[in-house]
Design a protein around this nucleic acid. Structure first.
Lengths: 124, 124
DNA sequence: CAGAATCCAACCGGATACTG
DNA sequence: CAGTATCCGGTTGGATTCTG
């Protein structure tokens, strides 16, 4: 993970990194860093949650967003979708073991975020 | 952090969370979860880096993006900008102590991301 | 070198309405 | 309940050009 430093044909110093293209940080962020994604996963940690409950828990995200992020998490194997055949239909979303493996750093993020001074905002 | 469950006036069950509005996870993500932000911060962990070097290290981000994210990180106090009066001018970006407090989480993310199977992609 | 400025297509995501 | 469908304005962010 150390930087690679070399000089080009014109003798100018060039600095490269061992993490080409989407570096690990960036790659990870693209998976759980998206809007609502981390939050959704986090709210599943205590057990299965129904769609509308989840929407309320996340709070602020539209149903459209919740659905899209859940579908993404599902195809990535972080979340499992289970349809109970009741009437009216009930759908449970459950975090998988794999999804659970992300809870560690999400908790780190939570702790860091909660310790933040008020004057820090997402925008500038 | 437990969910609050109550029934509304019509007797329908409502589930709320102790994390109203931008919950901690979401808030944190909006600060370091943005495109390139985490990556930039990460690449400053070993010491000050010059603008163009940083751009190369992050790799893939345009100068415009690097600049915008750096300005954001600067006003949030995660990064310090230092102009050396040399000719041509040289600008160093350095992570602050506060910025360093986020490295724990970023490192956890990195480890998680590196252990990811190939078939997991940011898109679906 | 370290940006600032401009342009603009693509995507994002909220609002709303509708469905089985 | 658990979504889907459609509309559409706002934001994003890459490409390009220019500057002290």
């Amino acid at each position: 993970m150390r930087a690679r430093v070399e000089d080009d044909a014109q003798g100018r110093r060039q600095v490269y990194e061992a993490c080409f293209e989407p570096c690990a940080i960036e790659k990870g962020m693209r998976i759980i860093g998206g809007k609502w994604t981390g939050s959704i996963l986090w709210h599943l940690k205590d057990g299965p949650v129904r769609f509308n409950d989840l929407a309320r828990m996340v709070g602020g995200a539209s149903k459209k967003m919740i659905t899209e992020r859940l579908r993404q998490l599902e195809t990535q194997g972080l979340v499992r979708r289970e349809v109970m055949d009741t009437a009216p239909v009930s759908v449970h979303y459950e975090i998988t073991e794999f999804g659970r493996s992300a809870l560690g750093f999400l908790d780190e993020l939570r702790k860091w975020s909660e310790g933040l001074p008020q004057e820090i905002h997402a925008d500038g």
